[in-house]
Design a protein around this nucleic acid. Structure first.
Lengths: 345, 345
DNA sequence: CTTAGCACTCAACCTCGACGAGTGCTAACG
DNA sequence: CGTTAGCACTCGTCGAGGTTGAGTGCTAAG
């Protein structure tokens, strides 16, 4: 990001007022209405300042005789230097908390609830990714016979994530044999991730060949699970976009909804996000996706335990109340982190 | 449904032509353009017929000097008596088939794929419910220790449906004890549904009290699973609504998307559907939901094995090409049935 | 019963002018 | 020299008025 053009005190106040007004009303704001809020200066003075703010690219005029609208850059300056984050109102807390009062034991179910809660709290489209670790660890596994050629692997991973997959049997094997192998593997495999499992010493049980073969398949499947976790994205609240006037244009709406339904595109975006510090805000074209040029993303991580983290955030119009949305996203993130942490037991 | 007003040959042909034209263009159709297709009669004659078709309620005039548009009743008559279903074009088959070429082993994953496939094939919002049986039967179960007070129940149900739930332990119990109980229960419980399990004789293992208690909780959870199956609805393809001119009105769009995102409302609707015969088409207000007054549902069942069936279908504009959509829904339903059947092993 | 002809209706579209919100510029003021 | 009142100017919005054309219903003739 290039160094922002520095602004004096008064220009900052005016820019802040423009963002506040426009965020509230959705209508380009003119010097007169600003002069009411900022009674210190006349509308003419403000007009001069607006002109220079437009010149340096922080404001845009839809047409000659219209008021000013913040540009992406303007929002960026606002977000970085001017914004006073608002506390999450009690009303919103009361709206969010019940979602986390009674929780299912599976992580994915919790995330689904989180998506709904955040969509309500932030009045935007919510996005949630599964918590990611360097390699998911196994908590328990089981083998169920399907037929002579196949067995069903049931993996219980950390966080009570349950995954199933059909495995090929090299030869016929009873359920009793499978159960024996499963309990044999359970003894050595618990707490390991894919990498750890591939370092496992030679077989332990009596059905050496079969067990070896199954273990190879299990490791392969776990690698797949790891990869899937990155791309799994839940979303909710598309309805919240519809009452925004800027999405009155159906063309635009269609592009945005297509991106949201096509989760792959979001996955790329989110994984590119730099979330080392608290919250990341991507404004308009900053996301790099043309379809989202009128949208902003507010993302943060939730932490469940020491090294497990997922991403949670919202997608909304660039004209969103950033001062409110940020804290709300963080609030929900904290709840999710706690809930997922508990599920990790 | 009240008895429909009978129509003579000519009126039928005209009604059919109106539906065909309107479905294609989305513009109210007038007598002149009909006279081109139905060269047998002059526009004046057709005009007379249109007037009587309007009187009996099969057609509607948006305003005095506009053409005619089919009413819900008109579509109903068309669908019941006039429609010639079209074969699913090879192009569509080629679009659908790849989705079912490589299949995951879990039923739910298959259904998700089905939803996407159908959304593409029918160019509408697809809806899919899980296959329902009178009571899902257990294939395998397992107990994993979470902490001193709780154990995680992992149920593998028919169709490789995996469900997990935390159970309360009346007293502390090792993983070894839990495994013993699990294998004891497995011996008697496999193939039973919730009802069957509650008729089970007194305990078999050595940890009588604990086992009894857990079994009660398991039965309760299975009942919940049964209930959940009815309400689980996957959907995809909201984007397909957006390029329909009738949803250019954002108000309307919002209502529809709200219903789709709020799955509960659809669940009620779908479970009310009468699917004894091949396919059910609900047109406009027939659904009873005001929000969907401009939408139609085309639903059918897919069968996986003898007594397992789920619902699959689409939600689109009332002005949808019923003659094409019906067969396509059936086509996908058949594929899904086969795929789920295979997953049931 | 069918159909040509015709008067009629009405949404869609265009144009035009009034309106007004908002601007940029200039000149006066402290 | 920064600030501000005043003013001419721009340009989108809104409503009135007029035109167009698709489509109708009715009538009378074939």
């Amino acid at each position: 990001m290039q160094h922002p053009v520095p602004l004096d005190q008064r220009k900052q106040q005016i820019l802040k007022a423009v963002v506040a007004d426009y965020t509230r009303t959705g209508v380009p704001v003119g010097s007169a209405s600003l002069a009411v809020h900022l009674a210190t200066w006349s509308s003419a003075t403000i007009r001069n300042e607006l002109a220079t703010l437009s010149e340096v690219g922080y404001l845009i005029q839809p047409h000659t005789s219209a008021g000013r609208v913040p540009s992406d850059l303007g929002y960026r300056y606002y977000v970085d230097f001017l914004m006073d984050e608002e506390d999450v109102p009690a009303a919103v807390r009361r709206q969010v908390d019940p979602f986390f009062a009674v929780l299912p034991s599976g992580v994915e179910d919790i995330l689904e609830i989180a998506a709904t809660a955040l969509a309500h709290a932030a009045d935007a489209v919510s996005l949630v990714t599964a918590p990611r670790a360097l390699g998911v660890r196994v908590k328990h596994l089981d083998l169920v016979k399907l037929n002579d050629a196949q067995a069903l692997l049931v993996l219980v991973l950390e966080g009570n994530l349950v995954r199933q997959q059909a495995l090929n049997l090299t030869g016929p094997a009873d359920q009793t044999v499978l159960s024996a192998i499963a309990s044999g593997l359970n003894a050595v495999v618990v707490g390991l991730n894919a990498a750890g499992m591939s370092r496992l010493p030679a077989s332990v049980g009596e059905h050496v060949a079969l067990e070896r073969d199954l273990l190879t398949q299990i490791i392969a499947f776990m690698t797949v699970c790891d990869a899937q976790q990155d791309t799994l994205i839940l979303h909710d609240g598309v309805r919240n976009l519809l009452h925004q006037p800027e999405f009155g244009d159906v063309e635009l709406l269609q592009q945005v909804i297509e991106v949201v339904e096509e989760e792959r595109m979001l996955a790329a975006l989110i994984s590119a996000a730099d979330l080392d510090h608290g919250i990341q805000i991507m404004i308009g074209r900053e996301s790099g996706m043309a379809e989202l040029s009128r949208c902003s993303l507010v993302l943060t991580t939730y932490r469940a335990g020491a090294e497990r983290r997922g991403t949670i955030g919202v997608l909304g119009s660039t004209r969103m109340p950033y001062a409110q949305v940020g804290p709300r996203v963080r609030y929900v993130a904290q709840r999710v982190g706690r809930a997922v942490g508990r599920a990790l037991s």
